[in-house]
Design a protein around this nucleic acid. Structure first.
Lengths: 254, 254
DNA sequence: CGCACCATTGACGTGGTTCAACCTTGGTGG
DNA sequence: CCACCAAGGTTGAACCACGTCAATGGTGCG
């Protein structure tokens, strides 16, 4: 995977990143990440602690059970969280997209593997320092609580999908989610898939073959259209949402 | 269900409850619940706010999408969190056992249905007051964060089960979990199942019939033994854990 | 060109669901 | 005291959605 770089989830290019490195003020995730509700003085403290790290698509950030000496916000790109059974079966547990938070205060090791799905930039904080900071910064602790609870809701939505949805519904749900996160206002409903077929299968609790077949079926029926391997078009979002099987509007998910 | 009352997860009887009503000091979940890390003065504030509520097995506490005007800790009993698709398919998202927390600050409506699986006692706090309290009580906010992150880990473990485990592994994993939560030190590995077959099926993403068949198979093979419908014995925990398919010791789950 | 990688497609097998009958248990009322 | 009933649980037989295995088709890169 050589730089599809998945711009679908945010409009920023690599060039803007250099700005972000200078100051939190210009950071693209300033108002959505863990720091969103920080006061200026609190932000100064975070700014003094932060450092940036980049990974290429496919690189592993931490292995399951390994030490993770930092916590971080995703600035650009997409990372996957996965957990495995001994015999090699793999389940993706979550996607980290820009503004999402990686790591948990109070625990030094990762309970899942974290891999960069696309080229990735993290805004990192050394764990111990961060833990000390949240003890004195109610804003930060409450923001982190809020984000954790959102993630919990997302994980639970995903449990419904994994436990009860059919293959077709699973694939449609994922595609609807991607389109939703990618669309700015009322664009033409186009997105780049952030994940390979294999990663999608891992996310949805399916095999690659089943994902591929369902994609083909949805395309054949005119519910979606595909441009190459990663391009996704949807002429009729309502139809896709019906296939996804949700009563609500697909808000669901991560 | 007329009072099996499921004592498996804690040794307390209904009589002790009256003690708990008097003072937090004698509360059976004092050191595990959201209040675990509170200082005496903080505890006083909580104590002034709290009230107890009880539900009988099978009663609904909130419907999906309805207002939940309080947050609460489970004192006795067991509640289930479920979410449904329009056509009636149901997935359980979590179990609430004594010391677990119900509700989230910052949101008035429940994203899932909450039902008392057994007779249930909650220690409740009016939502608005509780939200105000956590803003001023770092201990409480951090404890809630810690508990939320634990729940998130549990939800993610469950995703692995739902997405990748076989029916036999799912059932074995659940039984191992129940035995683990029930056992005090190194008892004879006996427990009462907190859930009916139907609830187990809902939890595991299976049908009642499949759960029943797997239980019968595990019993036939001597891995477990059953006393009536709810009694569970395990002569060889190691064997059960092998069937559960985890590499680790089954720490996993809620 | 040719290899490597990912995706697609087909043929086939199977684990789990579905549908239906039956059993067990506890409660109720004659 | 027992007949009856309702609810939960078990068991069996048939089906099918999805997994498995294997071959084929792009696409980009050395």
């Amino acid at each position: 995977m050589t730089q599809p770089h998945f711009k679908g989830f945010n409009g920023m290019s690599r060039i803007d990143l250099d700005l972000a490195k200078q100051s939190c003020a210009g950071c693209p995730i300033r108002h959505r990440a863990v720091c969103a509700t920080c006061e200026p003085d609190e932000l100064d403290q975070l700014e003094a602690m932060k450092s940036y790290g980049t990974w290429s698509a496919g690189e592993t950030i931490v292995l399951e059970g390994e030490k993770l000496p930092f916590v971080a916000s995703v600035v650009f790109g997409c990372a996957t969280l996965t957990r495995s059974l001994e015999d090699g079966r793999v389940q993706m547990l979550g996607l980290l997209l820009p503004s999402d938070f990686l790591g948990r205060p109070g625990r030094g090791t990762a309970p899942y593997e974290v891999v960069a799905a696309t080229d990735l930039t993290l805004c990192m904080f050394e764990r111990d320092a961060f833990e000390r900071l949240i003890e004195d910064t109610p804003h930060l602790a409450l923001r982190l609580l809020e984000m954790s609870l959102d993630e919990l809701d997302a994980a639970r939505d995903w449990m419904l999908l994994l436990g009860r949805k059919t293959a077709r519904e699973k694939v449609a749900t994922f595609l609807a989610y991607v389109l939703k996160r990618a669309s700015t206002a009322h664009g033409p409903l186009r997105a780049d898939l952030p994940l390979s077929r294999g990663d999608m299968a891992s996310y949805l609790g399916l095999t690659i073959e089943t994902v591929s077949r369902q994609m083909t079926a949805l395309k054949r029926e005119g519910i979606i259209d595909l441009e190459g391997k990663r391009g996704l078009l949807c002429p009729d979002m309502a139809a896709l949402l019906i296939e996804a099987g949700d009563d609500d509007d697909g808000a669901v998910i991560a």
